[in-house]
Amino acid sequence: MIRGRDGGRRMEGSAGTLERWAAILGGTAVGFAGARRGSWALAALGGGLFLAGAAGVPLSSPLRQAALPALRREPTTTQANVTIAVPADKLFRHWRNVRHLAALFPHLDAVEILSDTESRWKAHGPGGVPVVWNSRLDKVRENELITWHTLEGADLPHRGTVLFRPAPGGRGTEVSLTLAYHPPGGAGGNAVSRLFGTAPEQQAREALRRLKRIMEVGELPTIDGQPSGRAERGRVTSKLREVMG
């Protein structure tokens, strides 16, 4: 139902290409290790932890140019798709209410409405690093489309589109979320941007899944807080065990 896809838009001369690919591959490896050990926390968090470490390891530009020319065609656009058994107008209204968005994007802490088209967003990165950006709506077509872009100085520069269209066969609405994200201007040292750069596909997919579950069943199914033989050893220990696999 929910599919992620990387587009192939070329970003000329972007800094951090190799680092990002290293991070993606490393994150994937950690994720697989987590999955193999049955440790979902490791699988889910591995990529993020890896990145925090990888952030301070800049690689020289010549090496990048010489060794990995193909990788410069890095994906900078990502799209997730889901079909939700709810009419488009209801989904559109839900999305337009910014109070609802924190449930879809767990990193989001606050959204402040500045005007009809501008808003200020506060989120947190790994280790609680604050991430702030201002966003402006570009196009809003009732029950069909919302597009936006971030303004100068954003910690997470990006463009976004969410599209609602009726699904065939009375199956509800097909929702697409597309994010195009820009590497940070100038230096390659911004850990927060790098985090955003690695997992947008997953973030988009998870956001649409949460939207679907909230709109279809009114709750996010969970197993957090259920009993297991692990819980006996104490919650903190249990979390550690998860991370350690």
Partner: peptide
């Protein structure tokens, strides 16, 4: 192990 509790409204 601990007893289970209600985690969701359904």
């Amino acid at each position: 192990v601990p007893d289970p509790t209600i985690l969701g409204p359904q």
